[in-house]
Amino acid sequence: MNHFPEAWGRPRDDIYGSYNASYLPQSRGGLQSHHQPTTHTQQPIVTGTSVLALKFSTGVVIAADNLASYGSLARFTDVHRLKPFNKRAVVGFGGDVSDMQYLDRLLNSLDVEENYTSPTGDAKSDDDRALVDAPLMSAKNLHTYLAKVMYKRRTDFNPLWNALLVCGLDEKDQPFLASADLLGTTFSAPSMATGFGAHLAQPLLRRVAPDEAATQELSKEKAVEAIKECMKVLFYRDARSMNEYSVAVIDQSGVELKEDEKLENQSWAFADRIKGYGTQTV
């Protein structure tokens, strides 16, 4: 062994000759002048369908099913599309699953960074710190961060093919719910749904929570029930959906995430009364 650590563990030049780098591009010390073209996502491949969320008086409830589709093939049935960030923020992902996994890794590294750098208040030790209310990144902060990542990527013509719902509590511990999509478009509303849910579930959710004032009156139980009912409607009518889903409730007490829920009391009894597109009466 010599004192050049970068050479340790490699084939010895005096036995095997020096490494033949000719096939590598010039930037890697090779001879190849042509570079691989830079590749950008042009379409989503493995996809997740709708994400639903609804604000209530003290928090937010969010749900998404556990299916990742490959076109019309129900490819993976245990993909969890709700990602808790900290004890007061959860992100729900619709769209491309590989881009979701990239963003999840990005958020994990952000969380690690936050835990190292954020001031710890008057905590004396690590044990105290868990008890003291260290200034956590709020759901609003997280949404701003994700929206900027999405907008940057669309501006570079290399979009992350997702529709995100960011929910949780803002810096004043008020319920927060907002979305960001592959174009960097952002908006906020009392209830939100991505993908097919925007057509099927959003009208039902708006009946429960037409405006911010209505969410103040809405209980956690009513909100969860409304979301579960919408998941059922989506399973009836969205061909890229599944009856197993994840649901998370975020409020003052933290994140309560259930990742193996099943739809209950399904019935197609209503179907035999449907004529035409459902609006026909005779």
Partner: peptide
């Protein structure tokens, strides 16, 4: 012509 990512929408 190949479909390409279109970076705009109208809100």
């Amino acid at each position: 012509r190949q479909h390409a990512f279109y970076p705009y929408t109208d809100n």
